[in-house]
Amino acid sequence: MFGAGTLDERMLRRSIYFMIKRSKLIPSMQLFDSPEPLVSQGSRPATIIAPQALHFMNNGQVRASAMELARQLKAQPDTAAAVTLGYQTVLGRAPTPKEQKSIASFIDVQEKSYANNGRELALADFVQVLFGLNEFIYVQ
């Protein structure tokens, strides 16, 4: 059930089910203040550091997830519907009109900036931005 554990980034289960080996700590979890696994933790430190941002910007696993969702968004009839589905999937709410507007112009510019497959890549760029939002990172 837990598999060999630890360093396989394709693990799709919630991290609470991971088997953690102390010699093979998961880099992305370390990055987000995963508790030291040898002792119980009364409270957990939370840091905001640049390597976390780099993770959202450049990590292969993050990008692959964004591409995956982008493929679903691409099937929507228009940008507004794609943005709404993206918000519902990632943040569990509908976008505000203001957000719709900012994102629509972003997707438009991004789409034109890619030579091939612009629509899908622009949507993936948008999904990646959603992953980097404070609203996604913290449950308020």
């Binding site: 450049n58 990008r63 972003f106 609203e135």
Partner: peptide, 26 residues
């Protein structure tokens, strides 16, 4: 360093626009 290179096919301006949108939305 982990994650120091942009995703394949993305250029600096494209990423810059991502960060600008992120800032606006935040």
């Amino acid at each position: 360093i982990d994650n120091l290179k942009r995703p394949t096919g993305m250029n600096a301006e494209q990423q810059r626009r991502q960060l600008d949108l992120l800032k606006t939305l935040n």
